[in-house]
């Protein structure tokens, strides 16, 4: 240990295990919604088909690519900190946050486009759609919205990591916080990997 000032109660393995346990709760949070989707899809196949065709596959694919790249930049930033290259680790984290913002801007335009057509939770237009389509859009807004919230939280976590690296609180000897923030970001990517085909591809 290079920094005896902060040695008290530091448990890398325990912290990481705690992070994984938290990730499991997140997986079940989204897993429950996936299950609701699967059941209603099997019940209202036709309606889900029509509703899913309304979604923009291009913007969905673009956001998938953006998130996958951001997942790589986070993984690279952890490699960088392990090698002791703080500068590069910070630059890669900044790049990740920029990519996350690109994701959110795309989401803004995507949702904005839906709102223009009066498609938003609780709208009269949505209420008059067949039951299955209403359910699809309900799940679409709920799941992509909850996912977007996770993108924002992930950005905050990565944003907290950067000054910690700059202040040498995160070093090649001790990067648990950085690693856990990275795990959270990968979780955001992992969930999107399943959301994307369910919402945009399977029509």
């Amino acid at each position: 240990m290079t920094n005896p000032m902060h040695d008290e109660h530091h448990d890398h393995l325990g912290s990481k295990m705690g992070m994984w346990l938290f990730i499991f709760t997140e997986l079940f949070l989204f897993g429950g919604l996936f299950l609701v989707y699967a059941i209603f899809r099997s019940k209202y196949g036709e309606d889900f088909h029509h509703a899913a065709e309304e979604l923009n596959v291009f913007i969905g694919t673009l956001n998938t690519v953006v998130l996958l790249i951001s997942s790589m930049t986070v993984a690279m930033s952890i490699s960088a900190i392990q090698k002791g290259d703080s500068g590069r680790a910070i630059r890669l984290l900044l790049l990740t946050i920029v990519l996350a913002l690109v994701f959110m801007v795309n989401k803004y335009f995507e949702w904005g486009h839906k709102f223009e057509f009066k498609l938003y939770p609780g709208s009269p237009v949505l209420g008059n759609l067949p039951k299955g389509e209403l359910l699809f859009f309900g799940l679409y807004f709920m799941m992509t919205g909850l996912h977007a919230l996770h993108v924002v939280i992930g950005c905050v976590l990565l944003g907290i990591t950067i000054p910690k690296i700059a202040k040498k609180q995160i070093t090649s000897e001790r990067y648990t916080f950085h690693e856990n923030a990275g795990l959270y970001w990968h979780l955001v990517d992992f969930i999107w990997i399943f959301l994307f085909p369910m919402m945009y591809l399977i029509t």
Binding site: V57, T61, T64, V65, L68, I69, S71, M72, A75, M76, S79, Q82, K83, P197, L201, I202, T203
Partner: peptide, 25 residues
């Protein structure tokens, strides 16, 4: 410590699979 190259390879695989998935859809 994973190398930068290995992360690049993983990304390439992921992007290829995405392209495959979209094409099949």
């Amino acid at each position: 410590i994973s190398s930068y190259t290995s992360h690049g390879i993983v990304l390439t695989v992921l992007l290829t699979l995405t392209a495959l998935s979209v094409t099949i859809a």
